[in-house]
């Protein structure tokens, strides 16, 4: 199975310092967690335009940092939102949430390692 998140790509996105990488990972985790919560609420409420916008936003950052499976799921949600067909989006949303939990664990462990090195 491919890596859930591409740490080399994340490094490329940081300023090259361990602190910069750490800050970027923290921004990704906190911002994505909030967007995922808002997205899950939008899916529950059937708010298709919000689903499209929020899935697009979270999909962009997950794609940029190499979280390929999560970004695929979010792009599926974005497409459903754009087609105003979010009635059956619950399963995709649950899969995206589960994937995000795994990514949180991977990146959380990475942050723990960098903390230990300091």
């Amino acid at each position: 199975m491919p890596a859930r998140v591409d740490l080399a790509r994340l490094r490329e996105f940081s300023d090259g310092t361990p602190e910069g990488l750490r800050e970027l990972v923290e921004v990704f985790l906190s911002d994505s967690a909030q967007t995922m919560r808002e997205l899950a609420a939008a899916v529950r409420e059937g708010a298709a335009a919000q689903v499209e916008l929020l899935a697009h936003r979270a999909g962009g950052s997950s794609a940029a940092c190499g979280a390929a499976r999560l970004s695929d799921l979010l792009f599926d949600l974005e497409r459903l939102g754009r087609a105003r067909a979010v009635a059956g989006a619950g399963d995709v949303m649950r899969a995206a949430e589960a994937e995000f939990v795994e990514i949180q664990a991977v990146l959380g462990a990475h942050l723990g390692k960098t903390q230990d090195r300091r």
Binding site: F13, E23, L24, F28, D31, G60, S61
Partner: peptide
């Protein structure tokens, strides 16, 4: 850019 992660990076 509305995405905070990309904006920051």
């Amino acid at each position: 850019e509305d995405d905070k992660f990309l904006r920051r990076a």
